[in-house]
Design a protein around this nucleic acid. Structure first.
Lengths: 132, 132
DNA sequence: GCTTGACTTCAACAAAGGTTGAACTTGCAA
DNA sequence: TTGCAAGTTCAACCTTTGTTGAAGTCAAGC
């Protein structure tokens, strides 16, 4: 178990595959947290790069940075496996909710006449109207 | 079948539940298309408000306006029910792909040691190290 | 024919999610 | 001890997704 205990911005950036500026950005927005050393430098633990990776995945399924920060906020500062598991489950659940809403809304729209289906053949439309 | 044939920006905005400025924005970005009347006004058909509703759903699951426009671009200008169905299926499929990637990435991360789980109890960590 | 409301364009602004650059500090290493 | 890489802050900038406001046009009703 090679857990580095004090990672710098650069370390975390490399580990997470993002720019150092992004690491600072995520800290400012509460996605990750840092302590400071005597010289004012941010020090992260290993969970930081991990949180960022999860955040990136979460963004892909439509969560905002604010939402992600809130999701992580419920997480104890130094969470164990179960807490992380619960959080991951919550994230997946939220993503599933959104997918479900996509599905049901599309289904509803399809139920109410042809899904966005304009009567595209105008002649067809006019025919049915003139024949009425 | 009460298909309005020439809807203005305001009509579409009302129907889709968005601001007129958003309707113009979506037209500029290829999510919807319009013809112009003699006075330069945009004229939409019914599919416009529908496209916007779908676009809003798609944004919730992480697609960008550009991606949505591309999705709709494959759609004939005035698509029938099957084309819309195919498009809707593609959208759902993309959303599912992202959810699947979320799931598998989280699973991978969990497999590689405790998911982001820092060895939070330092004493515990140190114990295991000193006892080695 | 004139007002009124809804449209037009264009430019500026806003908030989210970052990046970049300037100016400065810190700590490791030769 | 001096140099250099990497850190710091702050401000400016960029893209995305729109909103707002100014200035003007158009059609419909009075």
């Amino acid at each position: 178990m090679t857990q580095a205990i004090a990672l710098t911005v650069g370390d975390v950036a490399r580990a997470a595959g993002v720019a150092p500026s992004a690491v600072r950005f995520y800290e400012q927005h509460g996605v990750i947290t840092a302590i400071r050393d005597s010289g004012g430098r941010r020090l992260f633990d290993d969970s930081a790069s991990c949180r960022i990776k999860v955040a990136k995945l979460a963004q892909r399924v439509g969560l905002t940075v604010r939402e992600i920060a809130e999701l992580f906020a419920d997480l104890p500062p130094s969470a164990g496996t179960e807490e992380w598991g619960r959080m991951a489950a919550a994230l997946v659940a939220e993503s599933e909710r959104r997918l479900a809403e996509l599905r049901t809304s599309l289904a509803e729209m399809q139920a109410g006449g042809p899904l966005c289906g304009v009567v595209d053949r105008l002649d067809q439309y006019n025919e049915s109207r003139t024949s009425a």
